[in-house]
């Protein structure tokens, strides 16, 4: 028998198996449930029900708008933060960036409830302004997820190119638009990916901050699963999966998006 040598690539076999069992197989099950009815036979019933219901479509829209708004806000707030953080002139210690992540150690539910209590104490009540408080809660919670990839990209940014841009006579805004922005594009896309989907599909923040008057796609999935309507819930989950697939397809040409997550410590 031919003796086979250990190769480094074999190290990925357990990893691959784990993913097949616990990531891919479960997702296939979701697709299966999405296109069957309660008796297990193939059906487009959930499809018809979802797209035939004007309210569900509007729910999807509202969730997308909140998601997009949150993405824009997080990036707008987070971008300058990341820029300041990578600039050695302003921030000497790398520890400061950790300060933006550390709140995550205090659990997210606890933080969200605390935010609600704080807002209540200063007179912004969830019952009166449910959308406002929900938005605040979203930004508050997802800002670190936007800062992280932006920060990692900017760390890798080639500073010489910025110098070169100035040397060639570009003004500050020109340099920013023509040099810095394109270089940080993977970070921006990555940040958007980390914020948009989770916002759309979150249900805890909308429940806690909006006094349960706000419904997002995430609430809808959770509601259907609570009511043992797996097929309907799975179909909505399937729609989310499709949206992710489309977004991945749109950003497929932007290389190195995946390499900018992580690497803070």
């Amino acid at each position: 028998m031919k003796k086979l040598r250990f190769k480094r690539k074999h190290l990925s076999i357990p990893y691959l198996l784990f993913f097949i069992f616990f990531v891919i197989l479960p997702l296939l099950l979701i697709v299966y449930y999405a296109f069957t009815d309660a008796n297990g036979s193939f059906s487009f019933g959930n499809f018809v029900e979802f797209f035939g219901n004007r309210n569900k479509i509007r729910l999807l829209s509202v969730s997308a708008i909140i998601g997009a708004l949150n993405t824009v806000l997080c990036i707008l707030i987070g971008y300058p933060v990341a820029m300041i953080l990578v600039n050695k002139k302003f921030v000497k210690s790398g520890i400061i960036v950790l300060l933006f992540i550390m709140p995550m150690w205090i659990n997210f539910v606890l933080r969200t409830a605390a935010t609600r209590d704080l807002l209540y104490a200063i007179g912004i009540e969830g019952g009166n302004y449910p959308y406002l408080t929900t938005m605040i809660g979203m930004v508050y919670n997802y800002l670190p997820f936007a800062i992280l990839p932006l920060y990692s990209t900017m760390l890798k940014m080639d500073k010489n190119l910025i110098e070169a841009s100035y040397d060639l006579g570009a003004t500050k805004p020109q340099t920013f638009v023509k040099t810095i922005l394109p270089m940080t594009k993977p970070g921006i896309i990555s940040a958007a990916q980390m914020v948009f989907m989770p916002t759309m599909s979150s249900f805890v923040i909308s429940d806690v901050m909006g006094e349960r008057k706000i419904q997002l796609i995430g609430n809808s999935i959770q509601f259907n699963f609570d009511q043992m309507r797996w097929n309907e819930g799975s179909f909505i989950a399937f729609i989310m999966l499709s949206i992710i697939a489309i977004l991945m397809f749109l950003t497929r040409n932007t290389t190195k998006v995946e390499t900018v997550r992580g690497g803070v410590w």
């Binding site: 309210n55 509007r58 729910l59 509202v62 997308a64 708008i65 349960r212 419904q215």
Partner: peptide
């Protein structure tokens, strides 16, 4: 579910499509 979603104006759909 419709009650929880409440009144949502169809403008939401238009915004998303335009987006």
């Amino acid at each position: 579910e419709n009650v929880k979603i409440g009144h949502i104006s169809p403008i939401a759909n238009i915004i998303v499509i335009v987006g």
